[in-house]
Design a protein around this nucleic acid. Sequence first.
DNA 1: TTGAAAATATTGAATATTCAAGAATTGAAG
DNA 2: CTTCAATTCTTGAATATTCAATATTTTCAA
Lengths: 147, 147
Amino acid sequence: MAKPPKQNSPITEHLAYLLAQANREINRQLELRLSKEGVPVEQWRILKVLSDGEGHSMGELADAVLLNHPTLTKMIDRMVSDTLVYRVQDPNDRRKVLMFISDRGKVLCKKLNSLAVDQEEHILESYGDKSTSELKRLLESLIDSSN
Amino acid sequence: MAKPPKQNSPITEHLAYLLAQANREINRQLELRLSKEGVPVEQWRILKVLSDGEGHSMGELADAVLLNHPTLTKMIDRMVSDTLVYRVQDPNDRRKVLMFISDRGKVLCKKLNSLAVDQEEHILESYGDKSTSELKRLLESLIDSSN
DNA sequence: TTGAAAATATTGAATATTCAAGAATTGAAG
DNA sequence: CTTCAATTCTTGAATATTCAATATTTTCAA
């Protein structure tokens, strides 16, 4: 007599698990590079978003860098201490705070960008051009379909 | 005179960012479902790994569920209190602790599995069969190429 | 215009995670 | 054997994150 059909797939087959695993690994690699400048990944994201020179509100930033509000507030506090960014009250809506990148922040951001580009190149090498762009496409579309 | 070429892609184009975003979203959805049973995603993963009935050491488990050792120890402490799992010292290597799932754990795990299957089905519907399996394939291969 | 509801950001307490150190056991070289 | 290094897990202190509550400002309906 045959075994009953396997009804529960192992965890390693779940999309949620694969995403977590891939994210963890890629993030670990990026972390490693950015640690050369002693900066956590989230701070790099913040600097990168702000490096358009425009003012961005805390809510906008929180969405963009995938952090919730209180966590962002506390991280920004640290970055203000390090004079990487600064706060300005929004003149049009005084509930809001606009964040700007400082000159020092811009300099740091450039260094971080090149470290990040190193990583992307490393991925392209070991994983391949085609796979990378296809994966990006699929991820974007998954994110879209989840809203 | 033309602008210099844009040298820094926006953060939303980085693979690391897309992975983080997709992971966050899918995880949020799964969390929402599992919260019906009041169980965090990591505990579901632990139960699922242990549900093969074999004993798994803490180190093995930590790798499998993407948690580092101290975090896992403390989570297991909670699960032991809830009598979902139990510890047995490995008779062959007394440095090791073997974790087992309890009967109560098995019952809970089944309920959680069906909640998780609901989610996977929901993804299949909105995102499509083909995209899902292609995405899984690419993620597996990315993970492979990162070792 | 006024007052209630919504939006925005921060704070503080509770909770969780991480880092570094410690305890126990095993392995292995001398 | 004995001793020293490596492995495995846990603990406690430091750090970070989250939840709930608060303060401020804006919006909008009555």
